[in-house]
C-alpha cells in the first residue's frame, strides 16, 4: 500500500460501495476484480474510466455507481485506485451474509455503527 488509509479514503470507499449496492442495478462483486484487472493490465486510470462507462452500456454497472467511482477518480483518488477498490471489496465482504439497509446510511461511521448495533442481522 502506498500510504496510510485515512478517513477520507474510507469515506470515499464507502460512498463508492453504497452507490454500487444501491444504484439502479446492484453491481456484482466480480466487477471490482475486473476494474482492478483493467488497471493492472493497462496501468492507466483512464482505461478504468473508459471500462466503467462501457460496462454501464452493457448493463453490468449502474450509471449512479459509475458516476460515483469516476467522480472519486477525478477528485484525487486516481493514484490510490487499488486501495480504494480494495476497501470497497472489504465492504462487500462485510455485508456478504447480512441484509443492511444502506439508504439512510451516509457515512462510514454510520455504517460501522449500524453494523455493530446488529441492525443488520443475517
Amino acid at each position: 500500500m502506498s500510504g496510510s488509509i485515512g478517513g477520507d479514503l474510507l469515506q470515499a470507499a464507502f460512498q463508492v460501495f453504497k452507490s454500487f449496492k444501491t444504484g439502479g442495478k446492484k453491481v456484482e462483486q466480480a466487477q471490482l476484480a475486473n476494474i482492478v484487472g483493467v488497471y493492472e493490465q493497462y496501468g492507466s486510470v483512464d482505461m478504468v474510466k473508459l471500462y466503467v462507462i462501457r460496462q454501464v452500456g452493457r448493463g453490468k454497472i449502474s450509471r449512479e455507481a459509475a458516476k460515483t467511482l469516476i467522480e472519486k477518480l477525478e477528485r484525487g483518488y486516481s493514484d490510490r485506485l487499488i486501495e480504494l477498490i480494495g476497501l470497497v471489496r472489504w465492504f462487500y465482504d462485510a455485508v456478504k451474509d447480512r441484509k443492511i439497509d444502506l439508504t439512510q446510511v451516509n457515512t462510514y461511521e454510520e455504517f460501522v455503527s449500524k453494523f455493530v448495533k446488529g441492525s443488520g442481522v443475517p
Partner: peptide, 10 residues
C-alpha cells in the same frame, strides 16, 4: 504490462 497513454485513449 502494456501501459496505455492518455494520448492513445484520446
Amino acid at each position: 504490462m502494456s501501459v496505455i497513454s492518455r494520448d492513445k485513449v484520446d
